[in-house]
């Protein structure tokens, strides 16, 4: 027998030391921070966090606040439109790019470049392009279309769509790239087989390729949905939440109450709701994606 079994704790010691930052981040910041915020969302914290338990008071107040309701409504409109449009446009563009076209990388570079820009830059550019006195509306009117009316920056009813246009401009390239990667991952022999069988390309896409790309769609959907919930910078830069509160979003609500409004409890409750929304999207996906892999 060897002298003594080396202590389990000290096996791979270097690897464990190297992993300390990860372990601290995972436990202290991610788990600890989340639990802390959720816990303090049940308190009456105002300017400073204070451990005075008030049950669901903050949540009741939150759901009675008009600004929060508007934020949720905006998030729904923005989120659903964003998902539908960016997926449809992104997929169609990817399919066009996949036709062995010339200048493919030029087109890709043009469609993707906005994704390299920050939301702040995106928001400010579109604020300018959509400016009713100088931008699109002004141009079309001066070209003779006097009745043309599109001023999403001043008109509360359509303000959120102005943000949507900017969001789509910035994010559709990403969807296109991910979809294109998915399309390229499909066995080329499938295409050869459909050519031999004489199936038209559009039919192949709808009945064969899209079903095969289901995993890519779902993963992209989860990633994009989780990102949409966090949308903040774009609003701050493009509209500042206005006109009035027409383009408020939950993430902005959280920030304003936590760091502007000195009402921490509301900020914590609102951020907990955001967490909940993300979990509803992510948990079933993670279960499907990774749960089944472990079994297999």
């Amino acid at each position: 027998m060897a002298a003594s079994r080396p202590n389990r704790l000290f096996r791979n010691l270097s690897a464990k030391i190297a992993a300390i930052p990860m372990i601290l981040t995972a436990l202290v910041v991610f788990v600890g921070g989340t639990v802390w915020t959720v816990a303090y969302s049940f308190t009456s914290s105002k300017m400073l966090p204070k451990w005075k338990f008030v049950g669901l008071d903050q949540y009741e107040r939150l759901w009675e606040t008009r600004r929060w309701m508007v934020s949720i409504e905006n998030l729904m409109i923005y989120g659903i439109c964003m998902l539908i449009f960016s997926f449809v446009i992104g997929f169609i563009l990817a399919a066009l790019m996949d036709q062995k076209i010339r200048f493919e990388s030029t087109f890709r570079t043009i469609i993707l470049y906005p994704y390299a820009l920050s939301f702040i830059v995106t928001g400010l550019v579109w604020q300018w392009v959509l400016n009713p006195e100088f931008g699109v509306q002004h141009i079309l009117r001066s070209l003779g279309w006097e009745s043309f009316n599109f001023d999403p920056l001043y008109n509360a009813d359509i303000a959120i769509f102005g943000v949507l246009i900017a969001g789509l401009w910035q994010g559709t390239g990403l969807i296109m790239v991910l979809m294109l990667a998915g399309l390229r991952g499909i066995d080329q022999e499938i295409w050869k087989a459909t050519r031999v069988d004489g199936i038209p390309a559009w039919k192949t896409y709808i009945f064969i390729v899209i079903p095969m790309m289901r995993p890519v769609f779902i993963t992209t959907l989860v990633l994009v949905a989780a990102a949409i919930v966090k949308v903040y910078d774009l609003i701050v830069a493009q509209t500042g939440g206005g006109p009035g509160i027409a383009t408020e979003m939950p993430a902005k609500y959280v920030y304003d109450y936590m760091f502007g409004g000195q009402n921490l409890g509301q900020g914590f409750a609102a951020s907990t709701m955001m967490l909940l929304a993300v979990l509803i999207v992510v948990v079933p996906w993670a279960y499907m994606e990774f749960g089944s892999k472990k079994r297999g």
Binding site: A26, L27, G33, V254, S271, L275, V278
Partner: peptide, 18 residues
């Protein structure tokens, strides 16, 4: 730890800000 870390990528930053 790695699973927690990856999950952390999805948690809205807002929850961890304060």
């Amino acid at each position: 730890f790695f699973t927690i870390l990856i999950f952390g990528a999805f948690i809205p930053y807002q929850v961890m800000l304060y």
